[in-house]
């Protein structure tokens, strides 16, 4: 697999605060990569370095092999960006905002309605941006990133402030992008979303990456108990070893139709991150 993003020993400081401390990570081409971490961890900062909006104090960051301090016209054409500050024209309509960028990106305006439909903004096409809710603005900003055929999308909290149904529509859009071969770099506070969508996640905490990997594998790694919790219909809970020794009792419970629920003691991504950061994530997610 080729690397879309390569980060080596990257450090960023603001005056005397060290926000990123020599972090190293990578994003493979065609995957959805999730950058997780508590508020203020430096997620947006890393996204800014990778998109050439901020220059690091040390280390290297590369986008498709090109140093992000030297991104040129050609590289920028391959990047779709959705920032936390949306950068939309308040007085223009949703459609006009995208029409303007269709001009700038030199793509046909005919794709605008299709994109609006896919993110559920079709109804608001003629509405002025200043009349949109925050979640709608964030979707419009995502729509703009989708307008050009980018090779990589940088999405800063694409589902922040959205209801679960709309969030799922966005997930479908991102999965569609992955099918098309687009690399997606996203930041999120939503652990469920990260688990469901991402091929790899990195957890940023106090300026360092404390965990990196496939979400399911990370959860497996922290499953120290290796037990099964069986709740029976009479309310009793039985703890079984997660192994062959559990086969017989399980079979008996099932044959007697006594099983209410079965759970593994595997932690969720959220459990892992609370354990690693000592902080509840995403109070605002």
């Amino acid at each position: 697999m080729k690397e879309a993003v390569t980060v080596e020993n990257l450090s960023v400081s603001f005056s005397d605060i060290r926000v990123l401390r020599q972090i190293t990570c990578k994003v493979e081409e065609g995957e959805i990569f999730g950058l997780l971490g508590p508020s203020g961890a430096g997620k947006t900062t890393l996204a800014k370095v990778l998109t050439g909006q901020l220059v690091q104090n040390g280390g290297v960051a590369k986008l498709f092999g090109k140093d992000t301090r030297k991104l040129g016209t050609k590289e920028r054409e391959q990047i779709g960006i959705m920032m936390d500050c949306f950068g939309l024209y308040d007085r223009l309509s949703v459609y006009d905002n995208l029409a303007f960028y269709a001009d700038i990106y030199r793509v046909p305006k005919s794709r605008i309605w299709g994109i609006l439909k896919s993110i559920g903004l079709e109804q608001a096409g003629k509405t002025a941006v200043q009349k949109l809710s925050k979640g709608m603005k964030s979707r419009l900003s995502l729509a703009r990133a989708l307008m050009r055929d980018a090779k990589i999308l940088f999405l800063d909290e694409p589902t922040c402030g959205l209801d679960p149904v709309t969030a799922r529509e966005i997930h479908a859009v991102l999965e569609e992008q992955r099918r098309k071969g687009t690399t997606v770099f996203l930041t999120t506070h939503n652990m469920y979303e990260a688990h469901k969508l991402c091929d790899h996640v990195a957890l940023l905490h106090e300026g360092v990456i404390v965990e990196y990997g496939n979400p399911a594998k990370i959860c497996g790694k922290y499953n120290r108990l290796q037990k099964l919790l069986v709740t029976l219909k009479d309310g009793k809970t039985v703890v079984l070893e997660n192994g062959s020794s559990a086969a017989l009792p399980m079979k008996e419970y099932l044959e007697a139709e006594r099983v209410e629920t079965v759970h593994s003691t595997e932690p969720t991504l959220e459990d892992v991150f609370v354990e690693l950061t000592g902080k509840e994530l995403g109070a605002d997610a």
């Binding site: 920028r76 500050c85 700038i104 703009r144």
Partner: peptide, 13 residues
């Protein structure tokens, strides 16, 4: 102020 210019410059304008 509204960061629209930043997005434009990032878009090769």
């Amino acid at each position: 102020e509204n960061n629209t210019l930043r997005v434009l410059l990032l878009s090769n304008v």
